[in-house]
């Protein structure tokens, strides 16, 4: 099939950037979206042009590296699917496809479609862990965990940290990402000793990094490639309020 691609090109962080249009004449419908991008890049190399930079790695929907916005939708139009798992059979012959980077001021563009998501890292470093040193763990079955809670914790932990929730949110809010991590630990007994400090620290860094606030539009859940539920945001709110109310100020 034939495609017209409108791709965001930006040399580096300080460049203003803009759209370029490319024609692809022979796209296989079985190819994945990123394989289509490979074909475009091969074509650009052959034409002595600079290929389009984009993040990608595992190409099986789990590493969370791929990140583009396709026709206005993070990871494209297919529900519960990362860009790398999106296949060209979901587009039609002659279509014009607009490809942009994730847009959020907390995710500055580094080049073309590559954005800097290190703000997520700093949120995780603020408290996205249980403080257990290597070797100090008790026997695993000494900590029984209710099966339903374990399943729920898994659902939250399935987040791949791609940032589509931020990209989808009109407010550029990271609440779903933070909510998923806070929820995972809030649902497990292992996470309880640090639950107050964790949520307060993570939310503080989230705000410092310049993410917007949550207004409960639900776009994050709808665009999340792992279909992480907005229930995580509500649990985050609950954890935050309860921590705020119970922590004694020094």
């Amino acid at each position: 099939m034939r495609l017209t691609l409108k791709v965001w090109r930006q040399k580096n962080k300080s460049d203003k950037g803009g759209f370029e249009t490319y024609q692809l004449n022979n796209v296989d419908t079985h190819a994945s979206f990123l394989e289509m991008m490979d074909v475009l890049n091969e074509q650009l190399v052959n034409e002595n042009k600079i290929p389009v930079a984009f993040d990608h790695d595992c190409r099986e929907g789990i590493c969370g590296a791929c990140s583009m916005v396709i026709n206005g939708r993070p990871h494209g139009p297919l529900k519960g699917t990362t860009t790398c798992q999106l296949h060209m059979r979901h587009f039609h012959d002659g279509e014009t496809v607009t490809i942009e980077p994730f847009r959020a001021n907390a995710f500055p563009v580094l080049k073309d479609l590559v954005v800097d998501r290190s703000s997520f890292e700093r949120i995780q470093q603020a408290g996205g862990y249980i403080s257990v040193g290597t070797g100090s763990a008790p026997e695993a079955n000494n900590i029984p965990v209710n099966k339903v809670d374990a399943e729920k914790a898994f659902d939250s932990a399935a987040c791949i940290g791609c940032g589509a929730c931020v990209a989808a949110c009109k407010n550029g809010s990271a609440m779903l990402f933070v909510g998923a991590k806070v929820s995972q630990y809030a649902l497990l007994p292992q996470g309880h000793p640090e639950r107050n400090e964790r949520v307060l620290n993570m939310v503080a860094v989230m705000d410092e990094e310049g993410f917007g606030g949550c207004t409960n539009t639900g776009a994050c859940e709808a665009e999340c490639p792992k279909e992480i539920s907005v229930a995580n945001i509500m649990r985050l709110n609950r954890e935050y309020i309860s921590a705020k109310l119970s922590v004694e100020k020094e």
Binding site: Y129, I130, Q184
Partner: peptide, 22 residues
């Protein structure tokens, strides 16, 4: 055997039985 202990303590959500055990 130590690996499993370590990972459980870190909050890795392993599959469990209804008893709450791994």
């Amino acid at each position: 055997v130590n690996i499993i202990d370590q990972c459980v303590a870190q909050g890795v959500p392993f599959a469990r039985e209804y008893s709450g055990l791994l």
